[in-house]
Design a protein around this nucleic acid. Structure first.
Length: 819
DNA sequence: GAGCACTGC
């Protein structure tokens, strides 16, 4: 029946576009690594046949001599004041050839440590040689030696992430020049895993010659590390403090096609930097074929594109099937297909993509029920089917189930068992499940959409991009040839789906980013060279918010406050609140709340134990609001940290709390550096009042007031919202501050605390100058507040201190508006 | 009456 509804019109695919670096780790890790070392060296490995350019005998400590010679050469260069010729020396930095590198790789001595190569090194080297990039080494050096900027396209399994930085190291010889080859990753796990792998490949200890740097963890050694994997965000932060990025000889941007916010901004920064630093080489690596876009972006002129270096991938072919007609209910159809595959196809596990928890649990439930019926009806032909849900906030041990083997046949001769994983997008890129042979793709995912005008974030079920669809398809071909069933027509795929998922910069809140750019001295946000320009409203709104927070003045200049705020790895609202909190004698408490607000939610709510989880949450309830509850949870966690079961019993996420501890420590160090005092109020009710006032200093733009009954509120932009069901406000105060506004089934405000409206006029009088506000229900409510508090008509003061209305900010905003 | 996935000295 599957065959009936599908047509095999398509085609065996050559290979799949990779989009995530975590793949690199697995694809490129050879099984040799796990096996015990078998020191079976061949002492007669014959390099004599090799056409090695240096013509030296491999028996000699060749590369070591080379390095000495290079060092001597460097001294000569220095002595000659840069006038020295190369003296025909063949191993000059950035002039090496693939033959020379092959020679060095085969040599008995590790040129970077002068230690003999281990047997493990040689085993891994054998595996490395089978990677597609290895066959293209000569071509790589030809291009690298000649050009400053290279665009590289390497498909899944090409080996680019692990090999290219090593190729560069053999050419740059960064250890001699006290420089570093940096390679950015979009995920922390990728940075750590790839660094470990490359350290093994280079026969060095992780953290020595090869290291990584991610938030909270710097596994590098100054003066020793010369290949450094790092998250894109870390390098971006670094560029704020050292705009020349002078420690680096070559910077490799990996997974550029993922278009994370940090990668996008980094590319803009590096493009300008490359002009100032001709000695800096850039390699932009991407898995997709839209390399032309990167080439054009980095082109010096329209007829001088940077060269493209392309390496094919290595994956198993996957057959793709489309429906002949559009499906009406993808959930029902997905269930039907899983059952069909189970009944008719060869053994092999199934991966089904759904958009969220509710769908996933529903699908699992239905599949389990229907398989039971099928097995009862056809015990001879239908084997057991294990259905496993997967989404991000599932507890880790539940997530681990996806790696369980498929169930055994019920009897020795019975039909074989099969595993089906029903997952959100998390399985598209972040988590890899081996053994998947069939993929069922309905073509939807939940995506974050941001509206800069209302500053509202929503999660919308939207069609995926073609790129996503191929990524999902590729999940079927990791261990052997597979099949992918797309629950839409080929016509729909071709004509309706976007080529790529919108880059993050186009659907994000840019307040933090803009502050960073201003801090980096980029005055003209409009002229900054974006690969994709963000919506002018996003920049405009971000600048407005920063102005209201007093991080930039009316002329668009960074204020002293803004400069400090930019150094904190926080949303500006949070850093503002934190920095002013000593004024309210509660910086200790605000520090904790800030840390808790910058980690994922600590609340666990397993679908089968929702009531228990809610009851557990009530134990932490304190009067005032959710922010104070977070403070309470953190403090209780610290008191009970010795008790391993404590978090579990209270339905709290231990990893999230641990991360909050880390963030808190990091922020505390930064506060010390900027001399932000750490102080506490002892009296509980006084503390609660202080905390709420400090909250107002950062979040005065995220205020709502009560309208009608039943948890109904209205934001300052007059958007009706509901208190999120997770809110544990004991009373329902007239005025509240909220941490986030999300639109899911309805618009909700989440993490909410009651405040006194007078505080808004007191601590944000410019923003609450009501004369500028259009008439609305909210404005009238605020007017009533000002009338009650006689003599404190904050709305009237300080207009003059705002400075010239025709300042540069106004000008910039005008230009943004007219774009 | 309830949540796609990442990330930051």
């Amino acid at each position: 029946m599957v065959k009936d509804s599908y047509t095999t019109l398509i085609v065996t695919l050559r290979s799949f576009e990779r989009t995530r670096s975590t793949d690199d780790v697995e694809v490129e890790t050879s099984p040799d690594r796990q096996k015990a070392e078998t020191p079976k060296e061949d002492p007669h490995h014959d390099l004599g046949d090799r056409q090695d350019g240096a013509g030296a005998s491999p028996r000699e400590p060749l590369f070591a001599a080379v390095l000495r010679e290079v060092a001597a050469e460097r001294e000569r260069v220095a002595l000659d004041d840069g006038a020295s010729a190369s003296r025909n020396f063949p191993y000059l930095p950035r002039e090496v050839t693939a033959d020379q590198v092959h020679l060095a790789l085969e040599h008995d001595t590790n040129p970077f440590t002068n230690q003999p190569h281990t047997a493990q090194y040689k085993k891994i080297l054998k595996a490395r040689k089978t990677l597609p990039v290895f066959a293209h080494m000569a071509e790589f050096y030809k291009i690298f030696n000649k050009h400053q900027i290279i665009i590289m396209v390497g498909e899944t399994g090409s080996g680019k992430t692990t090999q290219i930085p090593q190729f560069v190291a053999y050419s740059d010889l960064p250890h001699i020049k006290n420089k570093i080859v940096a390679c950015t990753q979009t995920r922390r796990v990728a940075a750590t895993a790839v660094a470990q792998r490359v350290a093994d490949e280079m026969d060095v200890q992780l953290g020595q010659q090869v290291g990584y740097s991610i938030r909270f963890e710097d596994m590098t050694e100054q003066g020793t590390t010369f290949i450094k994997y790092m998250t894109d965000g870390i390098l971006l932060r670094e560029s704020m403090h050292d705009p020349e990025l002078s420690r680096y000889s070559t910077i490799i941007i990996d997974d550029a096609h993922e278009r994370t916010l940090a990668t996008d901004i980094l590319m803009g920064v590096l493009k300008t930097l490359a002009r100032r630093r001709p000695d800096l080489k850039l390699i932009i690596m991407s898995a997709t074929l839209d390399a032309l876009k990167f080439q054009k972006y980095f082109a010096v002129s329209s007829d001088a594109l940077p060269p493209l270096f392309k390496v094919p991938g290595r994956t198993h072919p996957v057959e793709v099937f489309y429906t002949l007609e559009e499906v009406s209910d993808y959930v029902e159809d997905a269930i039907r297909f899983v059952l069909e595959i189970h009944c008719t196809e060869e053994p092999g596990d199934i991966l089904v993509f759904m958009t969220g928890e509710e769908e996933i649990e529903g699908v699992c439930h239905s599949i389990k029920r229907e398989v039971k019926d099928l097995i009862n009806a056809y015990p001879e032909t239908v084997g057991p089917l294990e259905c496993i849900p997967l989404y991000s906030w599932l507890p880790p041990q539940e997530q681990q189930r996806i790696f369980d083997p498929a169930p055994e046949a019920d009897s020795p001769d019975g039909p074989p068992g099969r595993k089906v994983v029903v997952s959100t997008n998390i399985a598209e890129s972040s988590l890899t499940i081996d053994g998947i042979v069939y993929v069922v793709d309905p073509g939807f995912s939940k995506q974050k959409v941001y509206n800069p005008n209302t500053r509202v974030e929503s999660l919308l079920v939207s069609p995926i991009s073609k790129e996503s669809a191929w990524q999902r398809t590729g999940r079927a071909g990791r261990t052997r040839p597979g099949k992918c069933f797309r629950l839409y027509t080929e016509k729909y795929f071709m004509s309706e789906l976007e080529e790529q998922t919108k880059p993050e910069i186009l659907r994000s809140n840019l307040v933090s980013t803009v502050l960073m750019l201003v801090k980096a001295g980029i005055k003209d946000l409009v002229e900054f060279d974006y690969l994709d320009e963000p919506a002018p409203e996003s920049l405009l709104k971000a600048l407005e918010v920063l102005n209201h927070l007093a991080a930039v003045d009316d002329d668009g200049n960074l204020t002293t406050l803004g400069s400090i705020m930019a150094d904190f790895p926080l949303d500006p609202q949070l850093s503002k609140m934190l920095i002013v909190s000593p004024e309210f004698k509660c910086s200790n408490e605000i520090l904790t709340i800030t840390a808790m607000l910058s980690v994922p939610s600590v609340w666990l709510r397993p679908s089968k134990k929702q009531e228990e989880a809610d009851a557990a949450k009530l134990l932490f309830a304190v009067p005032g609001g959710d922010h104070l509850i977070l403070l309470n949870v953190f403090n209780k966690y610290i008191l009970n940290q010795h008790d391993k079961d404590w978090t579990w019993i209270h339905y709290l996420s231990a990893p999230a709390l641990l991360q909050a501890v880390n963030v808190r420590e990091q922020l505390e160090r930064m506060m010390a550096r900027f001399e932000v005092d750490l102080v506490s109020v002892q009296d509980q009710s006084e503390m609660s009042l202080s905390v709420k006032q400090a909250l107002c200093c950062g979040f005065f733009m995220q205020v709502a007031h009560k309208v009608g009954g039943k948890r109904n509120y209205m934001t300052l932009n007059n958007q009706p919202v509901l208190l999120h069901p997770s809110c544990r406000l004991d009373t329902q105060p007239e005025w509240v501050i909220f941490n986030e506004l999300v639109v899911t089934t309805r618009p909700f405000i989440r993490t909410v605390t009651g405040i006194r409206p007078e505080w808004l006029f007191k601590y944000a009088n410019l923003y609450f100058d009501l004369r500028d506000w259009p008439d609305s229900e909210t404005k009238r409510a605020l007017m009533r507040v000002t009338k009650k508090t006689t003599g404190r008509s904050g709305a009237r003061i300080n207009k003059a201190t705002r400075g010239g209305e025709s300042g540069e900010v106004e000008e910039l905003m005008r230009r943004l508006r007219t774009r």
